[in-house]
Simulated assay, not measured.
Amino acid sequence: MKLEQKGHITKKERQDKEQVKAILKEQATGQEVKLLDVTKQAGAEDFFKLISNVIREADIDLISLDQFQLNLLAINLQRFSQCEKNINEQGLMIDGKKNPLIAASNIYLKNIQSLFNDLSLSRNARMKQLLNQIQTQKIEDPFKDLIN
């Protein structure tokens, strides 16, 4: 079951999705995602703190099961940053060949994008979430009184 879906869904599907979202929100209440030792060892502690702050401010519900992905995101951000720094220092070409760090950088970037989507941190994921909230809210029809 996709919690965010484009197109028409039945009332029952909408109710089921809202119930799942409520359960996920309840599971996340009071839980904290923690910095793992591997993230510290990778030198990605600052990235982890930055991401954690963004998540807290955006009121995104994460549970302890998400902490692995969050730590993995921090590590990938650190490694991507290091690759880009080295590419800038060494240049795009080394001895007439493409710098191998470019391929590594692209892999880390793809991992980062995937993890952002998985954690609902991307713009598209947030827009889908917001759109779904707007669609499921019981907003009174302003023209209802005019018709009756």
Rank of each mutant, 00 (worst) to 15 (best):
P142M: 11
I107T: 10
L36C: 07
I75S: 10
Q67P: 05
L62I: 10
T39M: 07
S105N: 11
E26K: 02
L131N: 15
N117Q: 12
L3E: 02
L101S: 04
L50I: 07
G96Y: 12
E32A: 06
D95K: 11
N76I: 01
D66M: 06
G43Y: 02
A42L: 10
G30L: 08
N53C: 05
N124M: 13
Q78E: 15
I112N: 05
Q133G: 04
D141E: 14
K97T: 12
I102T: 06
A125R: 03
L92S: 08
N99K: 05
L77H: 01
V54L: 13
E84D: 08
K34Y: 14
L115V: 09
K25V: 00
N86F: 10
L109P: 00
K21S: 03
Q19I: 00
S81G: 13
Q67N: 10
G91Q: 07
D145H: 12
I139Q: 12
A103S: 10
K2Q: 14
A104C: 09
N132T: 05
T10K: 10
F47K: 05
N86M: 13
M127F: 15
K12W: 04
L77C: 14
F47R: 03
P100D: 07
N88A: 13
N76H: 14
K40P: 04
D118H: 13
K11W: 08
K138E: 15
E4F: 12
K17E: 01
K110V: 10
F116K: 10
E140T: 12
L36Y: 13
N117V: 08
E4M: 01
